[in-house]
Every structure is written in structure tokens, then in C-alpha cells.
Design a protein around this nucleic acid. Structure first.
Length: 534
RNA sequence: GCCCUUGUAGCUCAGUGGAUAGAGCGUCGGUUUCCUAAACCGUGCGUCGCAAGUUCGAUUCUUGCCAAGGGCGCCA
């Protein structure tokens, strides 16, 4: 990589200027403003104090050395502002990027390797199996599935998992609600009021356990809804099966031998506060029943069989849960940091100018199905993935519906479709793209052409950053930027007309192909279709 | 009271320890005998919530305050 070559040269230069230990803060970065060159280093600013010179002076001396260092593609050096050294490169270095994209293709370009050898278990959605998935829950589906794709691209082996809470009070109430509706009685206190309960009750055969039948019905519904936006799971884990297997008792044994269990007020407590929790937690109540926490501990322990790292994606209302589970996993013998929780902020849904409160129990529902039916899977997923999971999201359904043909998803997809249109038109006109070896990329000098290449160059860093920071929305941002650069290029740089120089035409055809590769990679990571026609 | 997240353009949101803070939508104007106008180009726009600290440099990090949302059960 050219960046590391430049960084090495900077380090060498600093050493010969008397900086023995080059600080970590010395970096080589792409300046935001293209007028500041292609790469830039803050070396003189960071090191000036160490050698007792002012930044401009040190910068000048460093620049003199770098000019003699003969770094490939470097055309010119500038010192600017408080002491930045800017590297202006010949376009040839970006042409190398084009060759790299083409050589490596969709499968191998922008595929970091730092995750190799590590498996990651990602649990997400895991909504209560007592009804359809509401539109807020779709956010976790889109997020989790895309994160898995991104991690996979970085070499990790992701394992996507859905936990079915198919025992406990809620399931009993749900079963009772179904029975009540089926027999024409009132739904019990605290039961489920939604219209779907009546609909499902009508489907329910007479000779079944209502709770278990209802759960299976709900899970089928949730699974199909999520598949409707291309979200799938590798494992659907049953809480009931886990409890029946004796895993809970085994977990208690392990916790007991870890020495963090004690009895108080007739209950059994887990001393999670020694690992950062606010207070200790009850795991077995005075009446002998265990709390929800205990099966959860057993389950999270079990997930380590399917991942070196275990990630939960949880809604903001669960954030208080994280410290107790972190502590519990340490007690269960898992290294600190191998359990990780991503807290996503909630989704607000607005329809007809008013917020719709989502609750299965009261029956106020906008099912994710409904959203997908209105907007289509691509728009729905893109909408969920367009902003950071740390921000509360407001989805105004009327607005998205109205803008269904005029939104960022189509903008990006249109770029991809345009590329295929170019190929089709080239075929029609008998224009053949020659082997890349024989094509002179030096003809690509237009600022829009180079801008496309700069974006392609960024992709590997963007993918790596999205994986490390668990931030799929960075891919969304990148893909929009690449599409914008491509549309500008397309408008400014004709490709197929007869008056285009054949050399340039060939180079542009390859640039178009490289863009196609970039868009395909990005859209695939988001789980959004890359259409050939629009 | 304590904990988590957020506070950036009219709206919805990106972004960054640096050099003039960005995009979409909305406004107004322009571009098609030529590869998809679902596009492009131009136009306006900001005390980056407030205050202090760290730093050569803070919108970005730390602390306090203010505001919004979400949590603080022997519920799950």
C-alpha cells in the first residue's frame, strides 16, 4: 500500500532529524479537502516539541528529506497551514487502484483478513414469540444481518441466532388469550389484545396446546417477515429445550464453584456487582423458581459453543441488562470482552403525522410486514441502515411511501443499473472491452474519473471500520458517495459515442467495471439488491 | 437520585483531534439532436446544545450543566 510506503519514509525522515521514538500520533491520512493533496502527514506538528523546533521549520526540513526519498508516484510536496506536509501524487497511483479492483474483483477486493480464525455469534431480534414482529424490530434484523455480512467479509465466521423465549408467564398469557378468542371469551387481564390473536385463534386446531401452537405460529410469522427483507438465521434456539436439557442446573453449578453465589432473604443471589454491575441479582427466587436471568446465563454460555465472540444486539430498554450479563459470563469462565452487547436506540413510527406506540399487548401494531409491503425489501432495509444504531430513528411511513421513487436507495441502484445499461449499449454498438493489460489508463485524468477511483480506494478501510465499530451504516454512506461520484462521472465523461478517443473509451469502460464491482460489494453487504434494469 | 444514547443547515441525518464542517430532502435557476433526466450543474444555509479543561490545535477527548429518548423488580 502506498500509504505505508509514505509513512515509512516519514518515519525515516523523522529519525534522521533526531526523533528517536516516533510517536503513534504521527499519521498519513487522506485530507478532506482535495486541494491539500492526496495524502497528508501531521508529523511536523506532532514532533516539533520533541526536537525543540517550531512546526513549520521542522516541516520544511522533513519535506526536504522526503523530496529526496523518491517515493513512487509522488509528484510534488507542499507544506501548508500550521505545518502539514501534503503529498500530491500523479494520477498513476489511482490507476493502480483501478488495476487492483479489476484483478481482485467482487470476491477479493476490499476483503480485510483480520477476522480470520475467529467465529462470532450474533443474536438479534429475538422478539417475544407472541405475535408478529413490529416495524421497530425490523431495525435489529437489518442491522444484525448486515453486520454478519460485514464481519464475514473481514474473515470472521459469523453465526446468526434467534432466541425463542418459549416458556414463562408471557407464553402462558398468550396461550390463554388465544383460547379466549377461540371460545369467544374476553382476553385475560394483561393478555394480548391485537387483532392477530383472533385471526390466529380461528386457525388454531382444537387438539393442540394453545401456547406451544401459538409460539410456533408466531415464529413462523416472524421468520417469514424477516425473510421478506432477506434477513435469515443460522440457528433458532429454544429456551424451553435449553431448560429441559438441564443446562440451567449445570450453569448454577458452574456459578457456585466460581464462588459468586450467596443466599439472602431466602433467595439465591449472584454477586454481579463485583464485576461492575450496580447491584447483585437474584437468580433463584424465595419460592424456588429461577428468575429470567438464570436461563439467559445458561443460554449465553451455550452460545460460546457457536462463537469465540458472542454479540447481543439489544434495544435501548435492555441496556441495564448488559453489566449483569457481562459479569455472569466472566463467572462462567469466559474471558472479559468476549461477550459484547450492542445497544440500539429505538425506532419511532409516525403515521398520519402521529406517533404510533408499538405494543403487542394493546394491539397497536405496525408489523414489519406492512412496511415491507409498502416500501419493498430494499427500501425498508436501506431505511433501517441509513443512520447510526446509536440514534433514535423516526420512520415516517407516509413520507417514505410518498418518496418511494425518489430516495437514496434508488439513487444507488440506479447507478448500478446504468452501468449494466452501458454494457448492453456497448454490445449493441459492437464496442468490445479489451484486455486490461493493453489499455492505457493514463488517459484517465478528468477530476470526476479520479474521484470515482478515490472512493474505490477507500472501500477496504470503510469495510474494516464498519466491522470494528459494528457500524453497517458506514457502508450505506460509502455506497451513496460512490454512486454520486459515478453519476457525476457519467454526466461529464461520455463513453460510447463515436467521437470519444478509443484509448480513453477503453479506460473508461474499465472504470465503469470497477465501479460496478464496488457497488456490488457495498450493496451486498447491506443486503440490498443490485438491479441490472430500472 | 443513578446509568445508557442523542443534541451538527428549514427538515432527516452523515462526518472529523487539525487547515474553508458535508449529503439528501425542501427553495430558486439551468442541462437531453449525445451511453437510462430515478441523473447532472449551480444556488442558499450553520454560536457543530452551553461552559470549563486537556492539547501546538477541540465540533471531535474529559468534566459539569441544559434538553430529548430509554432504563434502574425475588417482571421478562
Amino acid at each position: 500500500m502506498l500509504r505505508s510506503t509514505i509513512l515509512d519514509a516519514v518515519h525515516d525522515g523523522l529519525r534522521s532529524l533526531g526523533v528517536d521514538q516516533v510517536p503513534d500520533g504521527v499519521t498519513v491520512e487522506r485530507p478532506a479537502n482535495p486541494e491539500h493533496g492526496d495524502w497528508s502527514t501531521n508529523a511536523a506538528l506532532v514532533c516539533s516539541k520533541l526536537v525543540g523546533k517550531n512546526p513549520r521549520q521542522l516541516g520544511q526540513e522533513l519535506m526536504d528529506l522526503l523530496e529526496r526519498a523518491d517515493i513512487p508516484h509522488v509528484e510534488r510536496l507542499d507544506i501548508a497551514g500550521p505545518g502539514f506536509i501534503n503529498f500530491v501524487l500523479s494520477p498513476a497511483w489511482l490507476h493502480d487502484v483501478l488495476v487492483e479492483v479489476i484483478d481482485q474483483g467482487t470476491d477479493r477486493y476490499a476483503r480485510p483478513t483480520f477476522g480470520e480464525g475467529t467465529s462470532v455469534n450474533i443474536e438479534f431480534v429475538s422478539s417475544n414469540p407472541t405475535g408478529p414482529l413490529h416495524a421497530g424490530g425490523g431495525r435489529w434484523g437489518a442491522f444484525g444481518d448486515s453486520l454478519a455480512r460485514i464481519l464475514s467479509r473481514c474473515g470472521y465466521e459469523p453465526h446468526k441466532e434467534f432466541y425463542i423465549n418459549d416458556r414463562g408467564n408471557q407464553t402462558v398469557l398468550f396461550g390463554q388469550s388465544l383460547t379466549a378468542r377461540k371460545t369467544g371469551h374476553a382476553v385475560p387481564e394483561g393478555g394480548y389484545q391485537g387483532d392477530y390473536v383472533s385471526e390466529w385463534a380461528a386457525e388454531m386446531p382444537d387438539d393442540v396446546d394453545p401456547a406451544q401452537w401459538g409460539i410456533a405460529r408466531a415464529i413462523q410469522e416472524v421468520r417469514e417477515s424477516l425473510e421478506g427483507m432477506h434477513v435469515t438465521f443460522d440457528t433458532w434456539s429454544s429456551e424451553k429445550a435449553l431448560v429441559d436439557s438441564g443446562a440451567v442446573e449445570a450453569a448454577v453449578q458452574t456459578l457456585r464453584s466460581s464462588g459468586h453465589i450467596y443466599e439472602k432473604d431466602g433467595a439465591t443471589w449472584l454477586a454481579t456487582s463485583v464485576e461492575g454491575d450496580d447491584k447483585d441479582r437474584v437468580i433463584v427466587k424465595a419460592d424456588g423458581q429461577f428468575t429470567y436471568l438464570l436461563p439467559d446465563i445458561a443460554y449465553h454460555h451455550d452460545k460460546f459453543n457457536r462463537g469465540d465472540i458472542v454479540i447481543d444486539i439489544l434495544g435501548a430498554d435492555h441496556h441495564g441488562y448488559v453489566p449483569r450479563m457481562k459479569a455472569s459470563m466472566i463467572f462462567m469462565g469466559h474471558e472479559a470482552g468476549t461477550y459484547e452487547a450492542i445497544i440500539g436506540q429505538n425506532v419511532k413510527l409516525v403515521r398520519g403525522g402521529e406517533e404510533v406506540k408499538l405494543s403487542k399487548r394493546t394491539g397497536d401494531m405496525i408489523a414489519v410486514d406492512e412496511l415491507i409491503a409498502d416500501l419493498g425489501p430494499d427500501v425498508t432495509r436501506f431505511a433501517y441502515l441509513i443512520q447510526s444504531i446509536d440514534t433514535t430513528q423516526t420512520i415516517d411511513i407516509d413520507l417514505w411511501k410518498a418518496q418511494v421513487s425518489e430516495n437514496p436507495v434508488f439513487y444507488v441502484q440506479y447507478a448500478h443499473a446504468r452501468i449494466h445499461s452501458i454494457s448492453r449499449e456497448a454490445d449493441k454498438r459492437g464496442i468490445v472491452r479489451n484486455e486490461l493489460d493493453g489499455v492505457s489508463l493514463a488517459t484517465l485524468t478528468n477530476r470526476n474519473e479520479l474521484a470515482v477511483l478515490r472512493h474505490l480506494l477507500e472501500l477496504e478501510d470503510v469495510v474494516a471500520g464498519a466491522a470494528r465499530d459494528r457500524a453497517p451504516h458506514r457502508i450505506t454512506t460509502w455506497v451513496r458517495d460512490l454512486a454520486a461520484a459515478f453519476h457525476s462521472f457519467y454526466n461529464d465523461c461520455p463513453i460510447l459515442p463515436t467521437n470519444v478517443d478509443p484509448e480513453l473509451q477503453q479506460a473508461r469502460l474499465w472504470l465503469v467495471e470497477a465501479t460496478r464491482i464496488g457497488l456490488s460489494i457495498g450493496l451486498d453487504l447491506l443486503g440490498v439488491d443490485a438491479p441490472e434494469y430500472m
